[in-house]
Amino acid sequence: MEPSRRRFLSTGALFGVAATLTWQLWGRRPLQADPRHAPQGLAPAGYATLVAAFDILLDSPRAGARAAKELDAFLATDGADQVAELSLALTLLEMAPGGLLDVRRFSALPRDEARDLLESWATSPVGVRRQIHSALRKAARFIWFDRPEAWGDLGYDGPWVK
């Protein structure tokens, strides 16, 4: 190959990679999930993903936001160790819908699509995906059903010690 042609192709390839990276980084820039709540444990991007996932796992945007807020507050006071692991898990989930040139994010998907994606992780052949689904599901449900307001529907009469 002629040197000038080789240089042209390699410059072009470099440009392509740089453009894709920029596109990916821009596309995945942090979302501010809820302007009324600045997360304390998680970074804003991770928090946005958490709210979206909890919304689906609890089948209610209001419940999702509230449970996410509680988990974030717990992480801020007690869970420094767990923040890094959870953040990584949330990043994987957030980036799951897209491909190389596709910058769709989990937290910005239409609800049905997000639900299908998250539910597919429950039975995924990829172990890490099952692990993330299971951890998020358990956390969301544990937090939600630990609230006295949720007990009425179950007929649970609550603690004996007051």
Binding site: A122, S134, R137, K138, A139, R141, F142, I143, W144, F145, D146, A150, W151, L154, Y156
Partner: peptide, 10 residues
């Protein structure tokens, strides 16, 4: 309890 029960059923 309710929280543990709800969290375990997938």
């Amino acid at each position: 309890g309710p929280a543990m029960t709800a969290s375990l059923v997938p």
